[in-house]
Amino acid sequence: MIETIEKLKADGIALINDAATLNDVNNVKVKIFGKNGDFTAAMRGLKDVPKEQKPEVGKAFNDVKVMLEGLIAEKERVFAEAEKQARIKSEYIDVTLPGKKELGALHPLTLVKNEILDTFIGLGFEVKEGPEIESDYYNFQLLNIPKDHPARDMQDSLYITDNFLLRTHTSPMQARTMTTQKPPIRIVVPGKVYRNDDDATHSPMFQQVEGLVVDKHITLCDLKGALEVFAKRLFDEKTKVRFRPSYFPFTEPSVEVDVSCSICHGKGCRVCKGTGWIEILGAGIVNPAVLEACGINSKEYSGYAFGFGIERIAMIKYGIPDIRLFFENDKRFLEQYK
């Protein structure tokens, strides 16, 4: 019996060594250990072995089985590895081909608007919106611009009727808020506004952001502080803010606000027309007449307000030369802002 086992071993080793593919290994496995395999057949002889020899023969069978199975497993591993390597080699792709992407772009005006709003939200401002078709009352009268006042010439209005118009600024939300809400008030109002104006820097529709703060002890210094935070966030940390006197009927004192040019940092360049400063918004202390018209005691409360055009800020920030690009919505323009 031992000789049979030795032969099984020798034949097995030879068969395994001869196996040239994973398939061969499988065949060998069947030939040796299958239902009708050599080893299986030989094992059946174990029952005829005398009882006292059984442990020895059984051990010999087992040793050979373990050894052959080990060889087969090793051979399988080698072939599997080789096959895997071959597959990997055959699976090379062109990694420089484009990926499957689907990312669209927010409109640059939305990007700038969100950036502005987030800055003011951080300063405790609540975002409010109002109707785009406004009444003369909110758009003008409550803001200290009575009918036939020369200040109406500052804004060429698009009228619907004598009493309704497309709002010329987001300022009516100042009046709408003050007539319905008690101080402290701290709001920013983004929205579309409309003027009878159309050229490379003016669009008949554009977006503004209005800011209004009403509380006790609000001063011009507070206005400057808030606008400095805004300008630094929007442009960069070095940006400075400068006030110049101006006039708006709903603020007194009124100022134009310049920021130091973020391109040349005040040295003078094409963007700032050599002045080192860029005018970005109008602001001021809320005219006490407006507070009173909206039912807020101007002896007790004061406030500041500011307003600017998002298009203008976006044009400065991104260096966009013509306002009409925003409304043409050419995909090649839009997708620059992904």
Partner: peptide, 18 residues
């Protein structure tokens, strides 16, 4: 106007933004 300083709500009540 260059004499105007910058303060941030020096004397105002806190509000909730959003």
């Amino acid at each position: 106007y260059n004499k105007i300083k910058s303060t941030l709500f020096a004397d105002a009540r806190q509000t909730m933004g959003g």
